[in-house]
Write a protein that binds this DNA or RNA. Structure first.
Lengths: 97, 97, 97, 97
DNA sequence: ACCGTGGTTAGCTTTC
DNA sequence: GAAAGCTAACCACGGT
């Protein structure tokens, strides 16, 4: 297990609270801001997606089914075929319609 | 990677669909029923929990805060202390109130 | 919106920290303990479920497929049929295998 | 409840399976592709975020705490203050450290 | 009464 | 292979 090597200098007597961390503080802030920027962009895209779904729903498409389709299209065809086969086998074995 | 050793016998000519799997089918069914039974019990408990929260809310307690308290009580005190300390350190370093 | 009617008495000068809340504190504690008891039982059941899945996996069943079966068995047959039909319709419409 | 107004024409005798849906099929495909494009972009951003966290971790920062900080910075300060106050009140009431 | 939002839970991925 | 963290689906609540 690695210790927090970024542990702040822990100055025994810092006069200014804002100095806590010093350079490390700047570094941390930078990381956080990068994350926050990316998060904003991500949320923007998620908004867009919601709008697309809403529009599709507005013209009568079933969103839940659309999601299933998206998933299916994303899957490897071979893997999908195998899983479906196994599902059919299990279903038959227990008498599930 | 281990193959599905429980692969059903795959009789080339089973007369009855319900026979697919045979003994394995019975075994599978048993597993599924055990899971389903446990799931029912779990859902019953979750219902009970919801009722407790509802009652607490009814007499004016804030459910969200209650959940936070539950979480805190569940945490190892030492670990919690360490995390809070680190949080305070980081907060100070970036000037977060 | 209702205020927190359970707001504690907020004694202006409580000598003992443990007196904060008084009767309400007792009430809160009781709620929390009920929740925690139920949570324990729930987690125990979840452990049991994990064990069942592990056992099934141990004899060669595919856990992921088992989960799908469980879901299917839980669904209303009519609703399931409708969804599958819609899925087939959409799939055909976009030329998905 | 609104019916699926986008229900496909359901031609009683479509000669070509790929014709199912016709115009609606094109429309659906378009929606799906828009979603998939946005999803790709989102996943790319998520990759970036993971890299930032990995880099931060690499120089010794605690990722879990960073996430807590991000959350705190995102919260409305006033709301946060209120919740913390309530948490403190409840904690005191039940004698939680 | 429905829509939208927030929170919780379950499933999947990845790490150890 | 087990455990943890993250993501996506589900659900219930509050708002309009």
């Amino acid at each position: 297990m690695s210790e927090n090597v970024a542990n702040f200098p822990q100055p025994s007597a810092s006069k200014e609270a804002k100095d806590v961390g010093g350079v490390a503080g700047q570094r941390l802030k930078s990381f956080l801001e990068r994350i926050e920027r990316l998060t904003e962009e991500k949320e923007s895209l998620m908004e867009d997606m919601k709008e697309v779904y809403a529009e599709a729903k507005g013209v009568g498409f079933d969103v839940k089914i659309m999601r299933r389709i998206i998933k299916l299209r994303k899957m490897d065809p071979e893997k999908r075929r195998e899983e479906d086969e196994l599902l059919a086998l299990y279903s038959a074995a227990i008498g599930l319609a």
